[in-house]
Computed example of a mutant assay.
Amino acid sequence: MSQYKEVVIGKKSLKYPVVQGGMGIGVSLGTLAGNVAKEGGAGTISAAQIGFREPDFYTNAEAANLRAIEKEIQTARKIAPTGVIGINIMTVTKEYEAQVRKAAECGVDFIVSGAGLPVKLPEYVKDFDVAIIPVVSSLRSAQVLIKMWQKRYQRLPDAVVIEGPKAGGHLGFLPEQLEDISDEEFEAEECRIIQYIRELGEANQIYIPVIVGGGVNTASDLKHHLELGADAIQAATKFVTTKECDAHPLYKEAYINCQKEDICIIKSPVGMPGRAIFNHFLDQVKKGLRPVQRCYRCMGACNPAKAPYCITEALIHAVKGELEEGLIFCGADAFQAAKITTVKQVMEELTQ
């Protein structure tokens, strides 16, 4: 039996209070998510341009992505038939509604949605039995979204992810906040959000689990956040350097070889700050040498005429191991990775 209190996502209980964060493009697909679920955590597939390996991706990305969502969910289910398996779909995705509906049709246990406020998510899943989990980074964003859901749809979140400033990929903070915010300041905000969610649950006679992510790498980190009142943690970077991770081996080696000073904050073409490993590609972007050649219509906020580079192409190059042409997203502590390990070992390190 697990030493932790029961955490229920939708209708399923986690053995361990660990949710693997979604990482795209192609870093967390069915294999990684399925193995995390098999080991008692919640596995999360990333829907971001998930169909990049489909033969028609470059001519019909929408169809390729929907097809790949089904394939990756099936892959995860074969590995963990009774495990807790979900998908992360960014709100800024142009085909957001279609992807949400497809994932729900395919029977995921939960849908995580951030990179903006998923205002219409309850509407898109109203005909499905699936848990919906928004990602927030401030008390204000949590209050605005949840009040909107209550008013429009009479729906509350089934869980909430609080994502801190040490997370990887796109971040829900202003660049100046990432420079100035301290661990203590964000933990104070974390506690305010947790208190709000607890009061919300009590007022509606339900229990809403709170999941905290960003810079969670050890069992002591997990314990600390549970002591602050969270129910589970979200870890992503730590799963990249596992054998089961869906990324190319060279992508994993980039984490192992990077130093703390290699990790930087960038401005994404969609206007949001992001965290990545500085490399030849980002050096070329800095010099203005990576203009967009074609648009894949991945995110509504991107203007290809003004974008410094195509984020779809950059992330695909990286996940395929073509690192000099790719953008390598990572968390703040990616430099701590020392070797290739396994999902089972990561789960043990986090929970024991």
Rank of each mutant, 00 (worst) to 15 (best):
Y4V: 09
V125R: 13
A63H: 09
E123C: 04
T351N: 10
L121Y: 10
K5C: 07
K286G: 11
A305F: 03
N257K: 13
V36H: 03
A203I: 10
G41E: 14
R198I: 12
I193A: 07
Y296P: 02
R198C: 08
P249L: 12
K12I: 07
L139H: 09
F173V: 06
E189V: 09
G43T: 05
Q177N: 13
K166D: 15
K260E: 14
A104G: 11
L171D: 12
C302K: 05
A142V: 07
S137W: 00
L29G: 01
I193S: 08
C330Q: 01
Q74D: 13
Y58E: 12
I87K: 00
V100Q: 04
M272Q: 09
I79Q: 03
D183L: 13
A230W: 01
C245V: 05
G51D: 12
V240H: 05
D246E: 04
L226N: 08
T341G: 01
I50D: 09
G213L: 10
E185D: 09
E185Y: 05
I146D: 11
A47L: 10
S28R: 12
G83V: 06
I328L: 14
S141I: 01
F52P: 00
M23Y: 06
P118L: 03
M272S: 08
A318I: 08
P291N: 00
C191D: 14
H317D: 12
C295Q: 02
G51A: 03
G43I: 07
A314H: 02
Q74P: 03
S138Q: 01
F52S: 06
A103L: 06
V210Q: 03
Q195Y: 14
G213A: 12
A230F: 03
I45N: 09
S13N: 10
E6F: 13
V216Y: 02
I162M: 07
R152M: 14
F281E: 01
G201Q: 04
E72C: 00
F110S: 05
A235M: 11
K151N: 15
K12C: 04
I89W: 00
L121R: 11
E199V: 08
T312E: 04
V27R: 13
L289R: 12
V84R: 02
Q20E: 09
R275P: 14
I328N: 11
V136H: 04
A131E: 14
L174E: 15
N204L: 05
I45F: 05
A230V: 05
G172T: 02
S137C: 01
E325K: 15
A33N: 10
E324Q: 12
E184L: 14
T82R: 04
W149Y: 02
G43E: 09
L139M: 05
R192T: 06
A276I: 08
K252I: 04
G21C: 02
E105Q: 15
I9Q: 12
C302P: 02
E179S: 14
